[in-house]
Nucleic acid binder design. Structure first.
Lengths: 239, 239
DNA sequence: CCTTTTATAGTCAGTGCGACTATAAAAGGG
DNA sequence: CCCTTTTATAGTCGCACTGACTATAAAAGG
């Protein structure tokens, strides 16, 4: 911080950019907005915007999240700072430092244009390519972080509604990891991890599908999973 | 990024602040600099400085690291972005957004004042309190991250010289975690984790102390530890 | 020479987990 | 109304990993 009083600094623009994930039809989707102006006019980009003088990057991210998704209450949603992107050339016109966040939504309300009238759309993760600026990299980093955090936190419940079945929770893992899990083993693991989920006491059951009705659970209070729920290795277990 | 073309942004100052850790005399130490000017004149703070127009926050952090430690080659040192602090009131005079980094040093060269003539000192982590700005919090966050990363990465080797004994590596874990580990079990675990360490082929041994000479190892190539080396839980194993 | 110190090897039991089988409870089709 | 399909849940078996512990090897110091 030396040299501070000489005001030997350059001014930067600071934005908060969001990778908003949700699950739709068994696939990971991300919220994208279409740019209307140069540079990258017509290209898709992660939603975001400038941090205002009276707010933190976290506040700006949450405000943008509400504006872009149209949700009235975003206070309970999981929002997590990823990292900050500051390479000098990442914006062709000026020096912009972007603080990136990842957000997880349980259900997917249809996206509408944000308050600034941009087009917004839920896009399958695999189809989200050729984004504006360095947003391809930010999105890839965000996806990697979410996948990794499923291993050692209860983050997966952020993709689920307030009450969910273990089958739904398992589908979150399978969709994000792109791997199939053994159902009895998944169940045993989740129930054996203290604080991961808690049973809804009433003999509550979910209707709608075929088969035996499933018991309902709520997200637990544990921040970390002990022991972690490790992703299966590509070449099979270390046998 | 909407509204971008209207230049509806406020200018921010962006700094890179560093939590530089090393091990000295079996205790975790952090590099602090003394502030010479208001605000917080005379208080200790994390080293850092403004990001220049032609560099990224990472480049600025590495540059500052070299200036503050006096090391001539900081290219191989572990430097990791932590998170960005952007609360409006964190600097009393102006809007400063700080990108925080953690750095790990194997040995501790005596700190001298940086290029800008500030006093610098290695301080035991537990004695680093009442720092300027929100640096208490940044330092605590950095320490938490380092402790957690020892579990699932080979980061501990960044505290060690290029060739080290397993006893030295174990001391890194014990010092950072503040817990004692069983030596035979630690050895078995480390050697069983592929890519964590690799033996120095020559019958190389370390001299200096009492007891049987120890074999030397180098840091392996694995980025992640599979399976992780979990921290012992405070209440003992989940028996 | 014996003790101390540190490194390394090995043993044993309990736990977690992958793979698998079995049973329960629903819907749907003949 | 039975039988198949589907999904949930319970349980078994064996192996790998790990914590606790014991034993041996190789150095320094008195």
């Amino acid at each position: 911080m030396d040299g501070y009083d000489k005001y030997a600094y350059e001014p930067f623009a600071v934005t908060a950019d969001l990778a908003v994930f949700t699950l739709r039809a068994g696939a990971l989707h991300v919220l994208l907005v279409e740019r209307g102006e140069e540079p990258y006019a017509g290209r898709w980009a992660l939603p975001g915007g400038f941090v205002r003088p009276d707010e933190s990057a976290e506040s700006a991210a949450r405000r943008e999240l509400g504006e872009e998704t149209g949700l009235t209450d975003v206070s309970g949603l999981h929002l997590e700072q990823l990292r900050t992107y500051s390479e000098p050339g990442r914006d062709p016109r000026m020096r912009v430092v972007s603080v990136a966040f990842a957000a997880l939504l349980p259900d997917a309300p249809e996206a509408h244009g944000g308050s600034d009238a941009a087009r917004a759309r839920w896009t399958p993760y695999d189809a989200a390519r050729q984004l504006a600026f360095d947003h391809d990299r930010i999105l890839a980093d965000a996806r990697g972080r979410v996948g990794a955090k499923l291993e050692y936190t209860g983050l997966a419940t952020a993709f689920c509604p307030p009450e969910f079945t273990l089958g739904e929770l398992q589908q979150v893992y399978e969709t994000v990891w792109g791997a199939e899990l053994d159902r009895p083993n998944f169940r045993r693991k989740v129930l054996a991890t203290p604080g991961f989920v808690e049973a809804v006491p009433g003999a509550a059951r979910l209707t709608g599908g075929r088969g035996k009705p499933a018991a309902l659970y709520r997200a637990g209070t544990a921040a970390a999973l002990h022991p972690p729920l490790l992703r299966p290795t590509p070449e099979g277990p270390p046998a």
